[in-house]
Write a protein that binds this DNA or RNA. Structure first.
Length: 566
RNA sequence: CGGGGCGUGGCGCAGCCUGGUAGCGCGCACCGUUCGGGUCGGUGAGGUCCCGAGUUCGAAUCUCGGCGCCCCGACCA
């Protein structure tokens, strides 16, 4: 009941060596510390220590979610028809399966369909709105590439919540509530994470944000301003590119022979111009039609932005390029062609060098509007060192981050196909405005390890630690320090702390090493001196400085160490 | 899906190139020792060398096919 346990009755299968297949530090430490074990690619078992920790994470989430919503539980196994109704049955990461009588099922990747199904049946009137429902339930996704241990798995628990409102204003409110709650959750988990602008995906809706935690092992690329609080995923990040060094203005484009100059560097060198004063032409194919995507020479075309601008596309093949432009790749450009042109905003003003659509030639002085007529869009990838688009003075830096949550204004994407409607005061029917909001407790936990560890192991925040205190008791079970250790334990428990009472027969050194590896916020060492001198040692896991104290002073020191682990 | 790597007692690895019936460290069991930073000594258990086919007198080792796992990329509601 106290949550304390004797280590000799617990399972702490620590390992000395890093697992051979681990790369990410959180992966290494969670396996070495006996928190998790792998069953297959992207499939992990939480051992007792890991499950305690994960449940702690989930409990923080539950505490905070309960302030705005209602907890429930929905099934993982779901009828296929539901997913056909929302046109999501074709999603490739969706596991499909069959029951008896060839009845088709799917394993849920998320629960919009299910929750909307219930809302459609159990919400009738505006009087029943708004609602926020949530659960923490297993998700199954046939990920093409699981990675980083627990960071990206094919089966994982997700806290997903769904809001139901009568209109946009209500949705905005539910969204804001989630945003606040999420900030508190990550704070309580000791995780540095914040909301950033992110891609809203192909599902429409009114937009959303994702919460990211900076970490070298993150998969997301985060753009951050050195000066103001602008932050975004590179998928949607904006910037003010540096102004190019333009050569003198020309009244009309001028052809120039550029033998062998097929790359931007080669071209810029050859002509002695700033790469930023050139254009990079990327021929792509959209719906079977060749389209020219244009960015500045010093920029990179961002795939997801391009897709948002033109729809699904693929790079054009060399023969398609020659057919459309009459020139080889490396010499093509926007002037004198009738293909559709989509240009990045940064090409709006100024004169640039571009391909002449004649192999081995380029044009100087190419000007949008005068020499060609493009559609403008945000196509370029934010580059390290660009200027912040918000404060216009800070420098943008790009760093990896772990996506630990997202909040999203769905709108009526699911309520319409699944007929989740309500009647207003006038008896008129409307589709419910929905939002969906996710957090991955395992990712949060792994991100916490990424942010809180040292060369010895994990240094948990008190909120997630499986136990608050790791008591290493040195000596035989009949030694006089043992009863004293039990008294200290009882005192700590009276303070509401949980204790891992390490009475294992192993040597003190190996238990100290284990204690630092598995990372409880405070360690108490009781030994012979506890019986003879009446002292014990208290070590805070973070910083690892150890103090020898009178037994009576131990609880206060432990409380302080636990309180400091946030 | 494209590229790269790996697969040998529970874990980490060597052996493979140059075929001859498997070894090291850790862990584990037992005995003794030690007991405040991964004690020391001794004894011992434990292996379909990922799977299948082939070459060969003989395959962990060579050949072919398959499977699994990791990393990079693509993808990611």
């Amino acid at each position: 009941m106290s949550g304390s346990i004797d280590a000799s009755r617990f399972l702490i299968p620590t390992l000395k060596d890093d697992p051979a297949d681990a790369e990410a530090i959180s992966h290494k430490l969670l396996v070495r510390g006996g928190y998790v074990r792998q069953l297959g690619s992207g499939l992990y078992t939480y051992l007792p220590l890991g499950w305690k920790m994960l449940q702690n994470t989930m409990q923080v989430i539950r505490d905070e979610m309960d302030t705005i919503g209602l907890e429930m539980l929905m099934p993982v196994l779901q009828p296929a028809e539901l997913w056909q109704a929302t046109n999501r049955y074709g999603i490739d990461v969706l596991f499909k399966t069959e029951g008896s009588g060839e009845k088709k099922y799917v394993l849920a990747i998320t629960h919009e369909e299910c929750v909307t199904y219930h809302a459609a049946r159990d919400i009738r009137s505006y009087r029943e709105l708004p609602q926020i429902w949530y659960h923490q339930q297993t998700k199954e996704r046939d990920e093409p590439r699981p990675r980083g241990g627990i960071l990206r798995t094919r089966e994982f628990i997700m806290k997903d919540s769904y809001s139901f409102d009568r209109d946009r204003a209500g949705l905005e409110e539910s969204y804001a509530k989630h945003r606040d709650v999420y900030i508190r959750i990550f704070e309580r988990c000791g995780l540095e994470a914040w909301p950033v602008e992110a891609d809203v995906g192909m599902m429409g809706g009114y937009g959303g944000e994702e919460f990211v935690a900076p970490s070298p092992n993150g998969e997301a690329e985060l753009v951050r301003c050195s000066n103001c609080d602008y932050a975004a995923n590179v998928e949607v990040g904006r910037s003010t590119p540096r102004p190019p060094q333009f050569p003198p203005r020309l009244d009309a484009p001028q052809e120039v022979e550029t033998p062998g100059a097929t790359t931007i560097e080669g071209l810029a060198d050859f002509l002695g111009v700033d790469p930023a004063a050139t254009t990079k032409a990327m021929p792509i194919v959209v719906d079977g039609e060749v389209v020219l995507a244009l960015v500045r020479g010093d920029q990179r075309l961002h795939e997801m932005k391009t897709e948002r601008a033109v729809g699904a596309y693929r790079p054009a093949q060399p023969d398609e390029i020659r057919a459309a432009f009459g020139a080889d790749p490396g010499s093509i450009g926007p002037v004198g062609t009738d293909v559709r042109i989509v240009a990045d905003e940064s090409l709006r003003d100024g004169q640039f060098v571009g391909g002449a659509n004649r192999t081995g030639w380029h044009l100087r002085g190419v000007e949008a509007g005068r020499d060609y007529t493009p559609e403008f869009a945000d196509l370029r990838e934010v580059a390290e060192g660009d200027t912040c688009p918000v404060c216009e003075s800070g420098t943008l830096h790009i760093e990896p981050a772990i996506e630990v949550g997202h909040i999203f204004k769905l709108g009526t994407r699911y309520s319409v196909p699944l007929n989740a409607n309500y009647l207003d005061e006038d008896g008129k029917e409307h589709p419910i405005e929905m939002g969906s909001y996710g957090i991955g407790p395992a990712r949060v936990s792994a991100a916490v390890v990424e942010q809180h560890h040292d060369e010895k192991g994990i240094a948990w925040p008190a909120s997630l630690a499986p136990f608050h205190v790791h008591m290493v008791v040195i000596g035989g079970l009949d030694d006089p320090q043992f009863p004293v250790a039990r008294e200290i334990q009882a005192e700590l428990e009276r303070d509401g702390l949980t204790v891992l009472f390490d009475d294992r027969a192993a040597s003190p050194g190996s238990r100290f090493a284990d204690a630092e590896l598995i990372g409880m916020p405070a360690r108490v060492t009781v030994g012979k001196r506890t019986a003879t001198d009446g002292t014990a040692d208290v070590q805070a896991r973070r910083g690892r400085d150890q103090r020898t104290l009178a037994v009576a002073d131990v609880p206060a020191a432990v409380r302080a160490a636990v309180a400091a682990a946030r």
